[in-house]
Write a protein that binds this DNA or RNA. Structure first.
Lengths: 139, 139
DNA sequence: GTAACTGCAAAATATTTGCATCCTT
DNA sequence: AAGGATGCAAATATTTTGCAGTTAC
């Protein structure tokens, strides 16, 4: 159970630094996805923009977080599940973008279906992004 | 059958101009997806970068083309099917990104499966992006 | 102490906007 | 002729890179 920031960082052979812990915490706190901009805002003017870029990049490389493709092409990042290893990202869950509140959720319990591809095509990764109205907003 | 650039443009109440015809032709010629950069290259130094931005924007608004979300977050555009109307884009097919040749294909015959969402969530649109090796590259 | 990380400055890219001119209808 | 489209210039925004100073191990 590496639910602690320090553990997660050590596990991935990364130095434990204040910035990394804070950014990682943002992800742990609320399991939704975050855009680069969100991190800047919520961190409270603390880091350099560059640090955020580099930190996110390292996290993605190590498989701690992954990027979510969105139709409007903002870059979103979200925590990976434990079965993601370095270089072998497996993203089996569905991402949900709410048109109302604009939040993005990882629906961990919704598994991506098998897609039947034409002969000759082989799939390494499947991303499913659903757009609609989330539970909060439909009340 | 509005397979002709002029028809498509007229149908959407757009002026028929050289730039629009050329850009539209790029999409018609090869039914793959194009990034902004691709268009600049293939157009042969013809247009202003700004014209491409504005043209693509108009095309998306009119529902002539749609954007494809990709994991590496480059912006891709592809032709819409006929059942897309202004403001009501329905994208029922799967997008395939080849890791080898980097091309993106619309697999029109592969239909996006129904996704069972948790209670409270309602889906308006589903995007499926498959990454892997395409037929050409796996030979 | 050494290697790695951060922050600042600056460069390289990418995107948006304003406006005068030209083209489509 | 009128309205829209284009191209140029310039303003913004975004991302990358280099390097010196700082921090983690």
């Amino acid at each position: 159970m590496a639910r602690d920031t320090k553990d997660i960082l050590k596990k991935n052979r990364l130095s434990v630094t204040a910035s990394r812990e804070k950014i990682l915490n943002l992800f742990l706190d609320q399991s939704g996805a975050l855009a680069h901009g969100d991190i800047e805002k919520r961190a409270g003017e603390k880091f350099d923009r560059v640090t955020i870029y580099r930190t996110l990049q390292v996290f993605v490389e190590k498989g701690i977080i992954h990027t979510i493709p969105t139709a409007d092409n903002s870059i979103l990042y979200a925590l990976c599940k434990d079965d993601c290893e370095e270089g072998h990202h497996h993203d089996h869950h569905v991402h949900f973008v709410c048109r109302q509140c604009q939040n993005t959720y990882c629906l961990d319990n919704v598994v991506t279906p098998d897609i039947k591809l034409p002969t000759g095509y082989s799939a390494k990764q499947i991303d499913v992004v659903v757009e609609g109205i989330c539970r909060q907003c439909s009340i």
